[in-house]
Design a protein around this nucleic acid. Structure first.
Lengths: 190, 190
DNA sequence: GCACTACCTGGACGATCGTCCAGGTAACTT
DNA sequence: AAGTTACCTGGACGATCGTCCAGGTAGTGC
């Protein structure tokens, strides 16, 4: 074996191009139709590859879903951390940055957010998915100073609740509408 | 038409026995395997009725899922309201009652809670389900005094977040562990 | 050039899906 | 007793599912 191979799911992966193309297509399908809409054929059509290509790159459909959600969780987590931190160094208030990020997650990023919570629910039934689901909590935790403090735990819960409830609003809430609640949740922490 | 009939889903329903049996079976299936596990045949087997019976009583599988989740939301909502109110008149602290109810929802009632949040996510994609999903919020709101207050909205979000995060804990949190967070969320309201 | 190997896919298989329909059953009316 | 009607279901249909496999292709080492 001359070229550098990595073992992934019991299968070799070199360029990984096809593989990531498939994962990205799967994420688009999940954002649009939910996990329920994921089949070999829908994802293959979305990615523009033959259905058999999925069986080649992933041991099972389940592996694909798990891989996609895990990968998505990582991307979203870093995106949020970067957003909050960069607006913090710009001198903006932390509450404002959080409120804006939440409004974004419920507006332009709505599909991504739904995917994220589908992961949560899947993780509730499958322990193997829990570390991936908790990444999101870990990112938020890394933004706090005393992660164990009661007020901070309340803040974490509040953020999840705001997002979840925002998903069943008829119109997504604006950052301005969210701001007072975020401020209230953040208040005892400063 | 001598006996009293009610129109349900464009179909008559008299005794409704079969119908509720099917709905209850569907709920058990959802609690066990999630919405993804619901098929005509799995529900029929769980209910001990022939698969064709589902097509007779429900216009489509989708109607069954929607009906089941709506019905479950109603039951859970009244159950929670009763629990909180009854323990309130017993002189216990409200925070304690809430914490206990949450711990119950994450322990013995875990399956029910997961079903509830599957409804949330389904409602995020299908506006028709949103009123049913919001019942849960309405119940909580009916317990508060000033539903529009910022602190109360934070409390509502916090409760949803606690439940959601509790579902991906490896061991369900106890009422004692939940109590400080609940108290913290309830604090500004009294 | 040839052999080799990793990479890829068309096409098909059996399983399972949602739904339908012809016909059976039992309760009520007359 | 006979008729009527609401209630129910066995069995089958076509569609779609996940997965497999024989074989094709393109790149590398000689």
């Amino acid at each position: 074996m001359s070229t550098a191979y990595r073992r992934v799911d019991g299968r070799r992966a070199r360029g990984d191009r096809r593989r990531t193309e498939i994962v990205e297509a799967a994420l688009r399908v999940i954002e649009r139709d939910g996990v329920a809409g994921v089949t070999h054929r829908t994802v293959a059509a979305e990615a523009g590859v033959p259905p058999a290509s999925l069986t080649y790159h992933f041991a099972s459909l389940d592996d694909l879903v798990v891989g996609t959600l895990t990968w998505s969780a990582e991307r979203m987590a870093t995106r949020i951390r970067d957003g909050i931190e960069s607006s913090r160094i710009k001198g903006r208030s932390q509450a404002g940055a959080v409120a804006e990020t939440l409004a974004e997650a419920l507006g332009p990023q709505r599909g991504r957010t739904m995917a994220e919570y589908e992961l949560y629910l899947l993780a509730a039934r499958r322990p193997a998915l829990r570390p991936a689901a908790r990444q999101w909590l870990d990112v938020l935790t890394s933004l706090g100073r005393q992660p164990d403090e009661v007020g901070f735990r309340a803040f974490l819960a509040g953020v999840d609740g705001i997002l979840l409830q925002g998903l069943i609003d008829d119109d997504p809430p604006t950052a301005a509408e969210l701001l007072p609640v975020v401020e209230h949740l953040l208040e005892p922490l400063r």
